[in-house]
Design a protein around this nucleic acid. Structure first.
Lengths: 346, 346
DNA sequence: ATGAAAGCGCTAACAT
DNA sequence: ATGTTAGCGCTTTCAT
């Protein structure tokens, strides 16, 4: 009765009995690994249909080497930065006939370690990790001998398998855009400097300012984290402390920009009329934000895609697989939060 | 050399040799399945440390019954409706010590079938499916004898394992909110009626209108799909066709509302001053949308969570597991797109 | 308290 | 062209 939920699925043995052939023949038919006569092939296929047979992937990879499985550990699937990235990974995995285990740590370091062990037990062929900032976390990965590539964030001075975007350039682009539009007195609200991307964006900001012949005003620099709350808090502080507001804010993430704009609006300061705000990362929310946010796009889908491709090169190349870093270039997305016209300010 | 990426990991046999005990003893130590002397236990643990051993989950579930794995098939991980739902599922899976395979079909029916077979081959213990609308798709699942629970959407007249929200009520709530605020001439822009949720929301709208003693004006009703584009298109059409606009729009999803508001703004029609717009589903974008959107919250996280809990009941209860449907109640989230005050319109 | 050995479902080398 | 058989890593009786 094919329609019944059979507690134990049919096995090759069942097929071989049903089709009155040997197990090896069944295997040969399924894997097309050697010639089998028309007749037996049919009998076997027939039996497979009848018994609703599906090979057991475990038994298979017990013998063989590969489990045809890859995994990814990401810090927060609810953060809009990641879904596109995950889709990029998944698409490539599928394309290669691999299955893909997604592990969401929800920013819990304990869950991270648990996942590492789980992945080991599942004998996964490769692992993508989005967001390792601490060298110790990386060590946990390496000491387990996992085949991995890092995504997005990386620990200090890491120079191996990594795919990310040129964060330094994101800020340069921001500054250049702002300056082109006529803004010169620019505040910076950044992320946690312990995170590589935040660090790079901050460096890029300083570099960009210098390049434009501008000075970074230390009283207009804030470091927090990539959240709405942090952007809100620091903008509030800036508003209350400064007698004269800067004419632009360069935020290190769109979330920060959202928070800053909220704070600004609460004080009836208009964006972009009174002050320009530049985001960074092109969050899917940004286009339709209260004020459509000018920002820097990060090619998140491609990041995931290329990271997975890179991982597959390592998997294919077995032990070898030369370490390499892929750095994607960001691009400017001009919307309305920075205005469009050259305004002259006294 | 523990730091080396060993192509083949240590096995129980290796441990047993290293610790000079039998394989059975190793197994007993690892699973605490029978008493082992202090001394041997230590020797075994020692060897496990040294060889960096991790049990092979495959071999394990080859013998035993359960693979300790669940899967979920979702239609679109990039749609902001789902990440929270997925997190709910994942959290419960983790809690139960199961691993969780996420399958994203990207709305591709072929990928759906492929995933079904994959899941079968991996001998997954249970499956969650968000978004089956077609009876034929369900049949594919059932004929494979999979242990599943449906989420969010369901095929017509489906009365088995399902977790969703009361879509009928979402529209009732919308209408009631609108009417309370003084709106009476209400347009409806809905989704694809072949989708259960869209159908239910449309039914709920009609019911709600009647309940409020209002008539549904057929020329103000549009059915499309849950996208920005669809909302935009139908609002445009309405604007161009109607000599006199309704005083409110009830949209069947936040995306539709976004699109409608876009169209409205393009025609310099203000929201909520000139027309109120009500969303549905409380998309994470909505709070900070161009005009913060009043909408109906869907408890997406809980949907995922409860669906997974329901699935575990089925897994635990083996073959049994009574079929049941869990319907969550939505709630109103009043923001600015519908205004706050009772306005009198002639 | 410990160990030997059978067997889970499959693949692949070897026989026939 | 087809079948026999030895493992893969582990769990689990069953002996000792």
């Amino acid at each position: 009765m094919a329609w019944m939920r059979s507690e134990t699925m049919a096995t090759m043995k069942d097929i071989s009995k049903n089709a009155k052939v040997s197990i090896a023949t069944v295997s040969a038919v399924i894997n097309k690994s050697s010639y089998v006569s028309q007749e037996l092939t049919e009998r076997v296929n027939q039996a497979i249909q009848e018994l609703n047979y599906r090979p057991n992937a475990f038994a298979r990879s017990l013998k063989g080497k590969s489990t045809k499985t890859v995994a990814a550990i990401v810090t927060d699937i609810e953060n809009p930065y990641y879904p596109a990235m995950i889709k990029g990974m998944d698409d490539v995995a599928i394309m290669n006939g691999f299955s893909f285990i997604l592990c969401n740590t929800a920013n819990d370091p304990k869950r991270f370690i648990n996942y590492l062990d789980l992945i080991l037990e599942k004998r996964v062929d490769g692992l993508l990790i989005s967001n390792i900032s601490l060298r110790e976390e990386l060590e946990q990965v390496e000491k387990r001998g996992l085949n991995y590539v890092l995504l997005n964030r990386k620990p200090p001075a890491y120079d191996k398998n990594y795919v990310g975007i040129n964060n330094h350039l994101t800020s340069e682009l921001s500054v250049k855009h702002l300056v082109t539009l006529g803004y010169r007195n620019i505040a910076y609200i950044g992320g946690d400097l312990k995170i590589s991307t935040a660090h790079e964006r901050w460096e890029g900001f300083q570099y960009g300012m210098t390049e434009q012949g501008l000075e970074v005003n230390a009283s207009l620099v804030f470091h927090g984290d990539y959240t709405i709350e942090s952007g809100y808090k620091h903008a509030k502080k800036m508003i209350s402390v400064q007698k004269r507001l800067p004419d632009a804010i360069c935020a290190a993430s769109d979330m920060i920009a959202f928070g800053a704009i909220k704070a600004l609006r609460e004080s009836s300061i208009r964006v972009p009329e009174d002050i320009a705000v530049m985001g960074n990362d092109n969050n899917p929310y940004s286009e339709n934000f209260i004020v459509p946010l000018s920002t820097i796009d990060h090619l998140k889908y491609d990041m995931g895609k290329m990271a997975m491709e890179s991982l597959f090169e390592r998997i294919e190349g077995k032990e070898r697989g030369i370490d390499r870093q892929i750095i994607l270039n960001p691009s400017l997305v001009a919307r309305v939060s920075c205005g469009w016209l050259n305004r002259s300010k006294d």
